[in-house]
Design a protein around this nucleic acid. Structure first.
Lengths: 143, 143
DNA sequence: TTCTCATCTGATACTGTATCTCATCTAGAA
DNA sequence: TTCTAGATGAGATACAGTATCAGATGAGAA
């Protein structure tokens, strides 16, 4: 088994440890990025053509419930899954050249905390997008 | 017309002002909460059975593009829409009851400044959306 | 007012993600 | 090893949203 911790988490949550679940969990961890159930199924089908599509969807939900994965909304009504740690997506988008940079979660967390304190909301997810011009485009416009 | 401002926004964005669009915009404003295109269509069908489903979906996108509404992600791969003033781009959305509160620009401005300083971007516009549960829904879930 | 045409509407078909059903299989306990 | 609650695989189904297209219409021009 690639990562015995994943199996432990499932067992601890009272879930069965099946070869399919182990394979899905291993593939999710190996991805090291946000992936969709569909992507995961397609990549796993290569090595295991008998793996069912529904099984991948179900297993991902099981992993989320067991605390071994996190589900995020992606644009286009797709769920993205990522192993272990939530990864928020905040963007800094240049309207000049189209370049997009990621904004670190550290910038957003303090705002979320203050908003929680003021509003009484319990915040689960955040989306922050900035639009403007990158340094290069600003310089180009000035010249 | 319930709210002439909505028509002005459409006109200003170079969009036609049709009876259907006026009806959809009025219903969205009257809701005063986050609603889905489907919900809006079903409620409007009562008074106007000829109103097409696709028209509601298209109109909501048009309103978003014109700055008269905002699109938010809801759980279950559904887009929620809410009428808003163009100058308010930040929302705090309850996934439990659909209530949406506006977040003051003052929370976001400092983040924008720090991001500008770090990245060299010149930021023109910002959009921040938080998703979670309001105090009432948190209390209801705990009981 | 009437004309004109770009664009909007409504109906329908289609896309793609996710869920449900059910016969079969199996992990894990005894 | 046997037993059984729960998992699997295949296919059907549900549902939000989009694409298409013929016909209708808003809004500016004449």
């Amino acid at each position: 088994m690639h990562d015995p911790r994943m199996a432990d988490r499932l067992r601890h949550a009272g879930e069965r440890v099946t070869p399919q679940r182990v394979r899905v969990a291993a593939a999710l961890e190996a991805a090291r990025r946000q992936v969709t159930a569909q992507e995961l199924w397609e990549s796993l089908r290569g090595s295991d053509p008998s793996l069912g599509r529904a099984t991948v969807f179900r297993t991902l939900e099981t992993l989320v419930a067991a605390g071994a994965a996190r589900r995020l909304e992606q644009d286009g009504h797709v769920y993205g899954y990522i192993a272990c740690r939530p990864e928020h997506h905040h963007h800094l988008s240049c309207v000049g050249c189209g370049r997009v940079e990621e904004i670190d979660e550290a910038f957003v967390a303090p705002v979320a905390e203050r908003v929680e304190a003021k509003s009484g909301f319990k915040i689960d997810d955040a989306r922050l997008d900035f639009y403007g011009r990158c340094a290069r485009c600003v310089a180009a416009a000035a010249s």
